[in-house]
Computed example of a mutant assay.
Amino acid sequence: MFNLIRNEWEKIFRQTSTYLMIGLLILILIASGAITKYIEGKEKAPSNEWKQELMAENKSLKQEAEGVQITTPSTREFIHKQTAINEYRIKNNLPPASKSTVWTFINDSTSLIPFAGLFVLVIAAGIVANEFTWGTIKVLLVKPYKRWKILLAKYVTANLFLLLMLFILFAGAWLIGAFLFGMGEASNNVHLAYVNGQVKEQSLFLYLVKSYAFHSLSVFMLAAMAFMISAVFRSSGLAIGLSVFLLFTGGTVTNLLASKFEWAKYSLFANTNLMQYIDGMPMVESMTMKFSIIMLLLYFSVFHILAFISFTRRDVAA
């Protein structure tokens, strides 16, 4: 199995496009940091009256929670959580970050995960289909390995590439953020979490790692879907086109459906963002993290059952 994975890994890095994708991701990070630095340079100096600002924000949130336009318990819970965090900051003299630091830049870089995911989808969509397109599938299948092991090695390699791109994004954001914005004040290097009715201080680094993992779930699931389409239909174009389209539109469409139909919670994209249970509120009121994990496991199982059955049972045309 190790030799199969190493062989697939070498195939990926024999392609010039792989290095172009990595270089483009780093360039996007640098451009993002430079733009943020330029915009902050044009802004006015931050106010020192942060306690008064948080008190005013809490007053506004409480008025909003009591308004007739707010009806869902999940929204009230979100407002209550934000109010509690603001009160904790005021009581413990923990001002919110008034300007960018390396940590805020890493947190902002999660918005670039879909771009990193775009490159991963290209690899996942082509890793099986290209064998048929290039005519190398017969050479691969005559090797003394069972078909399911060959397919598993390809899938593992695609996910290793996903981990590599996420590492490059995280490490690059840390290096660029530290260079452009510095480490920030010690009071800003802690994450405030609202757990079981209490505000607790947590490691900001661990929170960012968790945030990266949760935000990358949609890419992970779409890569599994692209891999399945690649194995079933043997078409990298179809796999890339459909998975990329869903990567950038699936969440938006699901949000629109969820505002009117409760059945939208069974959609894949209603469940890939587990951060909604930590920093926000569920897309549909009845959803829970347990429900989302079960739905993701079901989708994951279906994708792989279809991929492995198709690859191991279908004949290769002469």
Rank of each mutant, 00 (worst) to 15 (best):
W9V: 05
T16H: 15
S17K: 14
S17Q: 14
T18F: 12
T18K: 11
L24S: 07
L24Q: 03
I28E: 06
I28T: 09
I30T: 11
A31H: 06
S32L: 14
G33V: 08
A34G: 00
T36H: 01
T36V: 13
K42R: 05
K42S: 07
S47P: 04
E49D: 08
E49T: 03
Q52F: 04
E53H: 00
L54T: 02
M55A: 01
A56V: 04
K59A: 08
S60Q: 13
K62H: 10
K62Y: 12
K62V: 12
I70W: 03
H80Y: 02
K81I: 10
Q82E: 08
T83K: 02
N86G: 01
Y88A: 04
R89V: 05
N92E: 00
P95Y: 05
P95I: 01
A97D: 03
T101F: 03
N107I: 03
P114I: 11
A116V: 00
L118Q: 04
F119G: 01
F119K: 04
L121Q: 00
V122S: 05
V122P: 00
A125Y: 07
A125V: 11
G126N: 01
I127C: 02
V128R: 07
A129G: 06
N130C: 09
G135N: 06
K138P: 14
P144I: 11
K146D: 11
K146I: 11
K149R: 13
I150A: 01
A153I: 06
K154F: 14
L164G: 08
L169M: 10
F170R: 05
W174S: 01
L180N: 09
F181V: 02
G182Y: 03
E185H: 07
A186R: 00
N188G: 09
N188W: 03
N189A: 00
V195F: 14
V195D: 05
N196M: 09
Q198Y: 13
V199P: 10
K200T: 10
Q202F: 15
L204Y: 08
F205D: 06
K210A: 11
K210D: 11
K210F: 15
H215T: 08
H215G: 11
L217D: 04
L222T: 05
A223P: 12
F227P: 04
V232N: 07
F233V: 02
I240C: 05
G241C: 14
L242D: 08
L247F: 02
F248I: 11
T249I: 14
T252Q: 15
L256N: 14
L257P: 13
E262Y: 10
Y266D: 07
Y266P: 09
F269A: 08
F269K: 01
T272F: 12
L274T: 10
Y277Q: 00
D279F: 12
G280K: 08
T288G: 12
K290F: 13
S292H: 06
M295P: 06
F300Q: 04
F300A: 07
F303N: 08
H304D: 13
L306D: 10
F308S: 03
I309V: 13
F311I: 13
V316R: 10
